[in-house]
Structures are given as C-alpha cells and as structure tokens.
C-alpha cells in the first residue's frame, strides 16, 4: 500500500530542502537573537519613546500570524522598489518574528537577576557595559537557554511557511513531489521525520550546552 521507494528516488532533493530549512532557520535565530537583545534592552529602557516603540513592535509581531508577516515582507518590498530574492525575504521575516519572541524571553531573564547584584557591580566601579557583559548577560543566557532552545525549534517548524513564497525548503519540495508522484502520504511522513530529526538535534544540542553551563 505504502511505497517509500519513490521517496528514496528523490532523497537528494529532500535533503537539499532539509538543508535549506536548517540554515535559513538557524541564521534567522541568530539574527533574531541580536535583534532580540536590542529590543529587550529597549523594552527595559527608561526612555519612554524607545520603550513604547519596542513594546508596540513586540505586540504587533506576536499578535499577527507569521504567514501574514511573510506575505507582507515578500509582496511589499518590491512594491517599494526593493527587489530581493525569496530566500532573503524569508530570512528577514523569520528574524523579525523570532526577535520579538526572543526579546520577551530575554526580558524575563534580565528581570529575575536581583537588583543587588547590579548595585554591587556599580559599587565596585563597573561601567554599565561591564555590568551588562560580565554580570547580567552570562546569567541571562544560562537561565533562558531552555526557552531559547524551544524558540529555535518553533522557528524550524514555522519555517515551513516560507514554502508559500517560493523558497525551496523541505516543505516546498515535499509538496512538489507529493503532487507530481501522487504519493502525498509517503512524502509528508518523510518530511515529518526529517523535521523531527532536525528539531531533536537542536534539542540535544541545547541540553548539552545546558549541562556544560550548570556545573554548579
């Protein structure tokens, strides 16, 4: 009834798709992390305008479907005369999306650090940058690592949506071949397994880093 040999025939394309999904997602997570830290600091800033700007951005991103955000980036940029390949649009949309989520994760991480630790640092003459870099950030990273790992897994799964803007990721390849071969079940099951494989790797990596960091 099921014939997975047809999947094997297209295994190269599927693995290419998996690779595209993996690097786009991970690149977006990394860009989103940098943007997320900036957004988070803006959100915690005492400057009213910056704070409200970041707050609005985060609410807007979190409150609308990623599919909509993707479409807006993909269709609007050319409308303003900016022509970029679909892959770039996908990376921009995913980064902007995950930045908002990571900002909120990091904000929790910053807020649980007792004020006294920063007072001690200030008292010893640490600049705000040194206090951020050596006192707060290491603790925030350690404490938020499980949530950041989850966010990475979410982005990998959500990246299936970039198939709608003609990026040949794992999802797009799967859809293409399942319709040309009339074997949707085999292809979608395979795609599911491949996504699971990728997310499991991330999950294991996250746990490995966690165990390395919590030596105490």
């Amino acid at each position: 009834m099921f014939d997975f040999s047809v999947v094997l025939k297209y295994s190269d394309s599927l693995l290419n798709g998996l690779w595209t999904t993996a690097w786009i997602s991970i690149l977006s997570i990394l860009i989103g992390f940098v943007l997320g830290i900036i957004l988070c600091l803006g959100r915690l800033s005492s400057h009213t305008f910056i704070q409200y700007f970041c707050r609005t951005y985060i609410s807007a991103i979190r409150g609308a479907p990623l599919l909509v955000q993707l479409a807006i980036i993909f269709y609007f940029l050319p409308y303003w005369g900016i022509n970029i390949p679909p892959i770039a649009a996908a990376i921009i949309a995913l980064s902007m999306n995950t930045a908002a989520f990571q900002a909120e994760i990091l904000r929790d991480g910053f807020q649980v650090i007792p004020l006294g630790q920063k007072e001690a640092a200030w008292n010893y003459g640490y600049s705000s940058w040194q206090s951020f870099r050596y006192i707060e950030l290491p603790q925030v990273l350690r404490n938020t690592l499980p949530s950041l790992t989850n966010e990475t897994i979410d982005i990998i799964k959500n990246s299936a949506l970039i198939s709608t803007i003609a990026v040949t990721d794992l999802m797009r390849i799967t859809q293409t071949y399942s319709s040309t071969t009339y074997r949707p079940i085999e292809f979608f099951v395979t795609a599911g397994v491949l996504y699971l494989l990728l997310t499991s790797c991330i999950s294991l990596l996250g746990r490995y880093i966690e165990s390395r960091l919590t030596t105490h």
Partner: peptide, 18 residues
C-alpha cells in the same frame, strides 16, 4: 570614581552566582 575607596557589604551578600 569619587567612591572608589568606599565599599559596601550587603545584607543579601550579592555575590555573582555564575
């Protein structure tokens, strides 16, 4: 800088746990 010779010891110690 003016406080560089003044140190405080806190009730909650405020050591850096990492």
């Amino acid at each position: 800088k003016d406080l560089s010779e003044v140190c405080m010891v806190f009730q909650q110690f405020n050591l850096w746990p990492h």
